[in-house]
Structure formats: C-alpha cells, structure tokens
C-alpha cells in the first residue's frame, strides 16, 4: 500500500527542526512529527488525517538516552523494556513497554510515540474506501461519532501502554517549543494534566511542541509498580484494557495507591487511590477495589471485546495487582 504523497524532512538537530517548522508555519502548511512511524504510517496508509509534510525524527541526535529519573522521548520501547535499572525501580514500566505490540514494532516504536499514540476505533482505523462506504466519522473527514451518534465528542479509545504507568508515577513531560526563545527552552507538564478528554484533541500540546523527554520524581521509587494488559492474543494487539498500579504499603496497610487505566476512554485516566489509602490489604479490600474501579471505568463498543467484559477486567486487574504488590 502506497503512502499518500508528502514532503519529508529529516532534521538532525533541534536548530534544524526549528527552522523547518517555522518555515512550514509561515507558509501555513500542516505537518506531523514522526518518530518510529508505527502509528503514523498505518494511519497515513489509511488516509487518516494525513498531512502534506512529515518531519521524521529518525536523524535527530539525542532524545533517546535512558536514566532512571529521565527517559528520552525517542528511546525505543525495546530499550526501555530491557533497561535493568528501570526494571529494578519501575517493573511496571518495563512490563508495559515489553507488552507493546510485537518485538519488531518495539524496536521501531518510541516512548514518545506511545504516549502520543492516536486514539483507536473500529470506525476510524479503516481504509479510505471503508470509511467512505460507512460514512466518515467526526475524527476524520466526517462530523458525527459513529460509536455514540452525536456531534460533541469523539469516543475513540486511547491505546497506549506506557501512559497509565507514568500516570501512577506522576511523571512529567518535557517539550521543546519551536517558538521558544532558544534551543534549551523547555515546557514541562505533569502527565496528569496533559491528556484532555476528547478523542480528537487528546492532549494539551500546541503545534510545534516536540516531546523530548519524560522525568519521574525520585519519590516514585518507593512505589511498587505493576501493569496488566488485556488483549485477545498475547502479542501484536493494542490494549483494550490496561491497568497500572503503583503502591506503597506498610504492615499490610495501603500508604499510597495510584491507579490508572488505558484502553477504555479517549485518554488514559488517572484514578488516584479511589479512597483506599489506609486500608488493610486483604481479600475484602481487593474485592472492594475491584468494584470501585469497575464502576468508574467507561468503555465503548469500538475495539475488540465487549465493553462489559473490559470494564470487569479493569476491576479484576486492580484487585489482582493489589494482592500482588501488597507486602
């Protein structure tokens, strides 16, 4: 399948990237950044919101180093999944990275790409022919949502694996703003404020802002982390429910609990402790947590597995993680 025609830019430095973006913005041309391309290119093949310019980040120097407190946005998912120090402190993060798609796509895909992954929906991730025959949806070329017929909001499902884990760790995203004063200028946004509940807008990121790194606060190291992912096969597929948990407990009591969910709504949702801080970790507590999360999660009939099952799994995963991570 051929891609739609576009002009390709391959900056090797931030300075070059700034010049390219500024130039395009001056002439009013639209562009996409592309890191691994494993999300952008299938969408482009399907003619979903393809733009006339693509700025490939493949030649960009830097932005791929991994340290426990800061990970470059261009770090590959394989490198994250195999990073021993990350694995020691944040096993949930490396588990999540190791479960993204399949091995070759993890070699190509990046942290940044996974965090900024476009939302997914049966009515969206189809060819131009398919979407035309069905009637276009509001996210691409149409004006109404085909999952929940209305015109206000897109219900496509956020399908990244890493965001929920980073939400539980209270990570911060760092952006380079091409309009900023200089190359060192950086905008930092707590990940918990980054995502915006709408399948089209998805997050608070201005055009021209390039995600360069994420950082994880040092106090997150005291948390035990875990991630459970639901998909039909054990590989290739996106999460249709994913639950991340970070927990600290003492003498069997919850000291701090962070829960986040992916594969449900249009963005990953951080649920915090759901009021369970201070509770004794036992079967009863796990049951209540199951029920509490299950009742909060919203799922729609737009990805594999029925919504009710996916909701139920959110609860099951949370209960299981609690019992596994509790001391």
């Amino acid at each position: 399948m051929i891609l739609p025609t576009f002009e390709l830019h391959q900056p090797s430095s931030l300075a070059e990237l700034r010049a390219i973006c500024t130039g395009l913005e001056t002439t009013g041309e639209s562009y996409d950044f592309m890191a691994g391309g494993t999300d952008v290119l299938p969408n482009y093949k399907n003619r979903i919101n393809a733009r006339s310019h693509v700025i490939s980040l493949s030649k960009l120097e830097g932005c791929n180093t991994i340290a426990v407190d800061r990970i470059g946005a261009l770090a590959s998912l394989t490198d994250i999944a195999r990073h021993p120090e990350l694995g020691r402190h944040y096993p949930g993060l490396v588990e999540a990275a190791g479960q993204v798609s399949s091995p070759p796509l993890r070699n190509m895909g990046t942290l940044g790409g996974n965090l900024l992954l476009d939302t997914r929906c049966y009515y969206l991730n189809q060819s131009e022919f398919w979407r035309a025959s069905k009637g276009y949806c509001m996210k691409a070329d149409g004006d109404v949502c085909l999952v929940v017929p209305q015109k206000e909001i897109c219900y496509a499902t956020y399908s990244g694996d890493l965001a929920p884990v980073l939400l539980t760790l209270d990570a911060t995203l760092h952006f380079h703003d091409i309009h900023g004063q200089d190359e060192a200028a950086e905008r930092s946004v707590p990940i918990r404020e980054f995502y915006a509940l709408d399948g089209i807008q998805r997050f608070h990121k201005a055009p021209g802002e390039l995600l360069t790194a994420i950082s994880i606060p040092e106090n997150a190291r005291q948390l035990r982390t875990g991630y459970h992912k639901l998909r039909v096969r054990d590989t290739i597929e996106y999460p249709v429910m994913g639950v991340a948990m970070a927990l600290s407990s003492k003498a069997g009591k919850i000291e701090r609990l962070e829960l986040a969910v992916t594969g449900a709504e249009a963005i990953p949702i951080h649920y915090g402790d759901l009021g369970f801080t201070g509770r004794q970790i036992d079967d009863g507590c796990a049951d209540e947590l199951r029920a509490a999360l299950c009742s909060r999660v919203q799922t729609y009939r737009n990805v594999p597995f029925p919504p009710s099952y996916r909701k139920a799994m959110a609860g099951e995963f949370a209960g299981d993680l609690l019992m596994k991570l509790g001391d």
């Binding site: 399948m1 390709l8 494993t38 290119l41 299938p42 394989t78 798609s101 070759p104 070699n107 190509m108």
Partner: peptide, 23 residues
C-alpha cells in the same frame, strides 16, 4: 502491509524491523 504479519521483516543495524512501516 500494516505491521501485523512480519513477512517483510528485515534487519536494520542488526535489529529486526518491519520494512512496510519504514520510510
């Protein structure tokens, strides 16, 4: 042609990648 079968896998700097999704 969509990164889901592996028939087009090649090695890039020794690492396996999918040539249907590489520019």
């Amino acid at each position: 042609d969509m990164g889901t079968c592996g028939c087009c896998n090649v090695l890039v700097d020794g690492q396996v990648q999918m040539s249907c999704l590489l520019l």
